[in-house]
């Protein structure tokens, strides 16, 4: 097992046992900033090496997937789960959007197996953050009534994750492979260690959300496993259509399977305040994040290998 995964297990265990362990908020913030910038920089450097003309259709296809996933999640939550409209809309938005932490673990997983992937994945990751938020708000509010789109636009596009991912992409792209050499020790060489610290904290956070699930029951837990599985199939099929390699296919499946816990909770708190954040975070952090990290990622790689052998002839 990858050591970074063991850090996650350590965090969950320490959290459940109520160990005296607490990462200072500033450390968590620094670690998540480093992760976002590193992912952006890596993508920018790779994009700088190749022509951009193939990107537009891919970005559009992935945007479409970002709009479509919450359209599936909302009815399931609203009618099958009989949740309040605002809660169903908010959770659907979480699941349509993506988790940068899960993506980082997936890239580390591929790297340790020497499997390459498409350079534009970080760009697709950034693109996927947004559409589900819009769909979620529309489900909660409808088009007509007074949503403060300006405040929301601020929250979405000037939120930490988009600014750092896009900023990293642009810096990496502008500086190119040679230009980023001097900053590589901090961002690239330390990536695995930073990811390990991040996962330790994520384990602690996950443990703190498990109690909520005990109260809010089986439906949410089932949704937290089934929705990512459904998303991963959609992601795999779409990656197949776009002609991605096995690595890219597995990453797009992981993106479609992951649920947001940075950008979407912040946007929902401002735009759909009546939605209970405890429910969406319990599902996203208590169930889906650990499921993806421990079981999902290896599963999605196996699925990508199988599917690309099927469509490859």
């Amino acid at each position: 097992m990858d050591p970074i995964i063991l850090f996650f297990v350590l965090g969950v265990t320490a959290g459940i046992l109520r160990a005296e362990l607490r990462l200072p908020t500033a450390i968590y913030e620094l670690v998540s900033i480093l992760l976002l910038l590193t992912i952006g920089l890596k993508g920018g450097v790779e994009i700088a090496k190749q022509p951009l003309d193939a990107l537009l259709p891919q970005v559009s296809a992935v945007l479409l997937m970002g709009f479509a996933l919450p359209l599936v999640a909302f009815p399931a939550l609203f009618w099958l789960g009989r949740m309040a409209r605002a809660d169903a809309a908010s959770i659907a938005a979480h699941y349509g959007s993506v988790s940068v932490g899960t993506y980082a673990v997936a890239t580390a997983f591929l790297a340790s197996r020497n499997i390459g992937y498409e350079a534009q994945m970080p760009l697709l990751l950034t693109v996927l953050e947004v559409p589900a938020i819009i769909v979620g708000i529309l489900f909660a509010r409808g088009l007509s009534r007074g949503t403060d789109w300006r405040a929301l636009g601020r929250e979405v596009f000037l939120g930490k994750s988009i600014v750092l991912l896009l900023g990293g992409l642009l810096i990496g792209w502008a500086a190119g492979p040679e230009g980023v050499k001097p900053i590589e020790p901090l961002f690239f060489d330390l990536f695995q260690g930073v990811l390990a610290l991040f996962l330790l904290e994520m384990g602690l956070i996950t443990a703190s959300h498990l109690g909520v699930l005990r109260r809010h029951g089986v439906f949410l837990a089932a949704f937290g496993v089934l929705m990512p599985l459904f998303g991963s199939v959609v992601g795999t099929l779409l990656a197949g259509l776009l002609g991605f390699s096995v690595g890219g296919m597995m990453l797009l499946a992981t993106l479609a399977a992951s649920a947001s816990y940075i950008a979407v909770p912040a946007a929902m708190r401002i735009s759909v305040p009546e939605a209970n954040p405890t429910l969406s975070l319990a599902a996203s952090l208590g169930i889906t994040f650990p499921f993806n990290v421990l079981i999902g990622i290896p599963l999605y790689l196996a699925m990508a290998q199988w599917w690309s052998s099927v469509i490859g002839g």
Binding site: R22, L23, T25, Y28, E29, K160, E201, L204, I205, S208, Y261, I262, P265, A266, R269, P277, T278, L281
Partner: peptide, 13 residues
């Protein structure tokens, strides 16, 4: 009454 606000990360501060 909305539970522990541990300030461990963004959403719990």
């Amino acid at each position: 009454d909305r539970g522990v606000r541990s300030a461990g990360w963004d959403q719990s501060g």
